[in-house]
Design a protein around this nucleic acid. Structure first.
Length: 104
DNA sequence: AAACTGACTAATA
DNA sequence: CTATTAGCCAGTT
């Protein structure tokens, strides 16, 4: 895997997200110490897979929606994980940022 | 090494 | 509300 310092920082930042809360890519990038690299956060998470200790499902885009198309294999895993943590989804499939957006 | 890609964001239309 | 454009820059090929 293409290990890099940024990946490590990004993963570390994601791990800091409290349970039942969600954060945006831009926010994670900022926490990771690399503001402006929201895309890198997404890229890093994309390389992840089951078995990691990173709660990637708590990371969503600025709209509070899941950017990743539902994977038939995982059966909409991300949404299920969030719901089991108490995160409410809007009817349009967006997270309720009003309630669950994580604030440092 | 150079070009292409992208789990983004913000601004416009 | 959705669609398109542009800016962004490291990672991947």
């Amino acid at each position: 895997m293409a290990t890099s310092a940024l990946y490590t920082r990004i993963y570390g930042a994601v791990r800091r997200i409290p349970r039942g809360r969600i954060a945006t890519y831009g926010q994670i990038a900022r926490l990771a110490g690399v503001p402006g690299h929201a895309r890198l956060v997404g890229y890093a998470l994309h390389r992840l897979r089951e078995g990691t200790d990173v709660p990637w499902h708590r990371v969503v885009n600025a709209k509070g929606r899941i950017s990743l198309p539902p994977d038939p294999e995982s059966g909409g895993l991300q949404r299920g994980l969030l719901e089991s943590e108490g995160v409410a989804f809007d009817v349009s499939g967006a997270v309720d940022l009003k309630k669950h957006h994580w604030k440092k």
